[in-house]
Amino acid sequence: MDWLHLIILSLVQGITEFLPISSSAHLILPSQVLGWPDQGQAFDVAVHVGTLLAVLICFRHEVIATTRGWLAHVFRRQVSAESRLGWAIIIGTLPAGIIGLLLEDYIEQYTRSMLFIAATTIIFGLLLWYADVKGRRVAEMDQLTWKSALIIGFAQALALIPGTSRSGITMTAALLLGFTRQTAARFSFLLSIPLILAAGGLKAVELAQSGEAAPWNDIFIGAALSFVAAFLCIKLFLKALDALGMLPFVIYRLLLGVTLLFIAL
């Protein structure tokens, strides 16, 4: 893989994975707009590893506490806020996992055009703005129920469509349910862990089954760059979220969507 492509795509993946602007759209577009070749399975594995490490380190205390609480509930029937959060993450993960397995081929075939991505970028950007403006923004993490987790989980399944943004649509759903911006963002990031782990593992298996020699230099560099970009992005996003709200990301999505429409038409 060309070094320039590797560096740019790794940084783009790390920056866009957790911002509500769609990482999948940004990774698909270089091949269609700039004529870049497909980044390949090794790159996909690398950036998944990098972004997974970033979110795990940023939320290490929550991950450890939630895991312990969930295990305590499973084996000792001890109910706690942490155990409820653990079950909420599991429930919220199921819709995207099941729907992804059933419809992956259809989605790959029919939803990756530039015109389609432009439309979803604009539509879901406007929906994010509506949720941020109209949401009550009062509920905290301890008010998360299995029903709200399931609703957010079905919203997350929409992120299988390029241009939607996994973080964007889950935050949108959480805001519409009345959660605060911080809770919406933090639950979205925690909810990303199982999916990133599953997607990265699947890509690793595909790479191993392909019989191709693993380009370890590309993997290490891609993982490192995406890790740094994702780590800084999460920290800065959470720090600035309450002051800025979602409007800057909505404006970016609208500008990007209009630009893509202009190119596509």
Results as ranks from 00 to 15, higher is better:
Leu102His: 07
Phe249Ala: 00
Ser167Thr: 13
Gly211Ser: 10
Glu82Asp: 13
Thr120Asn: 07
Ile122Glu: 07
Gly168Pro: 03
Arg181Tyr: 12
Ile89Ser: 01
Glu140Ser: 11
Ser210Pro: 03
Leu236Ile: 09
Ala157Phe: 01
Ala185Lys: 05
Asp242Thr: 14
Phe249His: 04
Ala230Met: 06
Ala184His: 08
Ala223Leu: 05
Leu255Trp: 01
Ile8Val: 12
Val74Tyr: 00
Leu56Ser: 02
Leu102Trp: 08
His26Met: 08
Phe179Pro: 02
Met141Gly: 14
Leu126Val: 06
Val49Leu: 14
Gly125Gln: 09
Gly135Pro: 06
Phe154Glu: 01
Glu82Trp: 02
Gly257Lys: 04
Gly14Asn: 01
Leu115Pro: 09
Asp242His: 09
Ala54Glu: 04
Val79Asp: 07
Arg76His: 14
Pro162Trp: 05
Glu212Thr: 14
Ala65Pro: 10
Met246Pro: 00
Ile169Tyr: 01
Ser80Thr: 07
Ile152Lys: 01
Met171Ala: 15
Ala173Ile: 03
Tyr110Thr: 08
Gly40Met: 12
Pro194Gln: 06
Pro162Lys: 03
Phe116Gln: 06
Ala173Pro: 04
His73Gln: 06
Ile151Glu: 03
Leu255Val: 14
Glu17Asn: 05
Val33Ile: 15
Glu104Thr: 11
Arg136Thr: 15
Ile107Leu: 03
Arg76Ala: 13
Arg77Ser: 12
Thr51Phe: 00
Leu254Met: 09
Val47Lys: 04
Leu254Lys: 12
Pro30Leu: 14
Trp129Tyr: 15
Gly168Gln: 02
Thr121Cys: 13
Gly168Leu: 03
Ala214Thr: 14
Thr172Tyr: 02
Pro20Ile: 07
Leu94Ala: 10
Asn217Arg: 15
Leu29Trp: 06
Val74Asn: 03
Ile64Val: 15
Gly86Met: 09
Ile28Cys: 06
Leu27Phe: 10
Leu101Pro: 06
Thr66Tyr: 12
Lys235Ile: 15
Gln39Thr: 09
Glu82Val: 00
Ser210Cys: 10
Phe262Val: 15
Ala198Tyr: 02
Leu207Asn: 06
Ile99Lys: 05
Leu150Trp: 03
Phe43Thr: 01
Ala229Lys: 05
Leu190Cys: 00
Ile152Gln: 00
Arg76Ile: 05
Gly178Val: 07
Pro248Phe: 13
Thr16Lys: 05
Ile28Leu: 15
Leu238Glu: 00
Met114Ser: 08
Ala25Phe: 05
Gly92Thr: 01
Gly35Asp: 02
Gly92Arg: 00
Phe154Trp: 01
Leu150Cys: 07
Gln32Ile: 13
Val138Thr: 12
Gly211His: 14
Leu9His: 06
Arg84Ala: 03
Ser31Thr: 11
Gln182Tyr: 14
Gln156Tyr: 06
Thr145Ser: 14
Leu53Ile: 11
Ala223Gln: 08
Ala264Cys: 04
Thr111His: 13
Ile64His: 10
Leu158Thr: 04
Ile193Gln: 07
Val63Lys: 01
Tyr106Thr: 11
Gln32Glu: 15
Ile234Gly: 01
Pro162Thr: 05
Leu52Thr: 03
